Computed example of a mutant assay.
Amino acid sequence: MSFFSDVERELVLTARTTVAEGIVALELTAANGRPLPNWEPGSHIDLILGSGLERQYSLCADPDVRDRWRIAVQREDGGRGGSLAAHALEPGQVVRARGPRSTFAFAPPASGERAVFVAGGIGITPILPMVRAARAS
């Protein structure tokens, strides 16, 4: 577990992109302009959305990029409001988050071995960095 897993920080939403029907990718940077903590494939953050809403979202970009984090959020109209609040965020807004932490660790395959990934829908988000790590190994 990362030293930073319980640290709460301010992030700025720098980009909001619709990537599929009902799914937005949110790009977040540190409000203070500093590099964000290291993370590994399978890590997630807790996004604190106000009104007591906290939701976990998988980091789905390149772990070597330290100036921003990227998550994807599927809109759940019948849910309890977390995805609706995340979908309502606009670039420039400040949001609080904790993490990263990993509860879905990935060990890249040894040289010459292959890895097979199976994922669908929004479940692909934690898998994307794993695919990059497998290719790099």
Score class of each variant (00 low, 15 high):
residue 1 M to D: 10
residue 2 S to M: 13
residue 2 S to P: 04
residue 3 F to C: 08
residue 4 F to K: 12
residue 5 S to L: 11
residue 5 S to C: 15
residue 5 S to P: 10
residue 5 S to T: 15
residue 6 D to C: 11
residue 8 E to K: 05
residue 10 E to D: 14
residue 13 L to Y: 06
residue 13 L to I: 04
residue 17 T to C: 11
residue 18 T to K: 04
residue 20 A to W: 03
residue 21 E to M: 09
residue 25 A to R: 07
residue 25 A to K: 10
residue 25 A to V: 04
residue 27 E to C: 15
residue 28 L to M: 06
residue 28 L to K: 02
residue 28 L to C: 05
residue 29 T to G: 14
residue 31 A to D: 11
residue 31 A to T: 08
residue 31 A to E: 08
residue 32 N to W: 08
residue 33 G to F: 12
residue 34 R to K: 14
residue 35 P to N: 08
residue 36 L to N: 11
residue 38 N to P: 09
residue 39 W to N: 04
residue 39 W to Q: 05
residue 44 H to G: 01
residue 44 H to E: 07
residue 44 H to V: 05
residue 45 I to R: 00
residue 47 L to F: 06
residue 48 I to P: 02
residue 50 G to K: 09
residue 55 R to M: 08
residue 55 R to F: 06
residue 58 S to E: 05
residue 60 C to G: 07
residue 63 P to Y: 15
residue 63 P to K: 12
residue 66 R to G: 05
residue 68 R to S: 15
residue 68 R to K: 14
residue 70 R to D: 04
residue 71 I to M: 03
residue 72 A to M: 05
residue 72 A to H: 02
residue 72 A to G: 11
residue 72 A to V: 04
residue 73 V to E: 00
residue 73 V to W: 00
residue 75 R to M: 07
residue 75 R to F: 05
residue 76 E to I: 08
residue 82 G to Q: 10
residue 83 S to M: 01
residue 84 L to T: 15
residue 85 A to D: 02
residue 85 A to P: 01
residue 86 A to M: 06
residue 87 H to M: 06
residue 87 H to T: 03
residue 90 E to G: 12
residue 92 G to F: 08
residue 93 Q to K: 13
residue 93 Q to T: 13
residue 94 V to P: 10
residue 95 V to C: 13
residue 97 A to W: 00
residue 97 A to G: 07
residue 99 G to H: 02
residue 100 P to L: 02
residue 101 R to M: 10
residue 103 T to I: 12
residue 104 F to I: 02
residue 105 A to E: 14
residue 106 F to K: 01
residue 106 F to N: 04
residue 106 F to C: 07
residue 107 A to E: 07
residue 109 P to R: 13
residue 110 A to N: 14
residue 110 A to H: 11
residue 111 S to H: 14
residue 113 E to Q: 12
residue 114 R to E: 09
residue 115 A to S: 08
residue 116 V to N: 15
residue 117 F to R: 14
residue 117 F to G: 11
residue 118 V to Q: 10
residue 119 A to R: 09
residue 122 I to V: 08
residue 124 I to G: 00
residue 125 T to K: 00
residue 125 T to V: 04
residue 125 T to Y: 00
residue 126 P to C: 01
residue 127 I to W: 01
residue 127 I to A: 05
residue 128 L to S: 10
residue 129 P to G: 02
residue 130 M to S: 02
residue 130 M to A: 03
residue 131 V to H: 05
residue 135 R to Y: 13
residue 137 S to P: 09
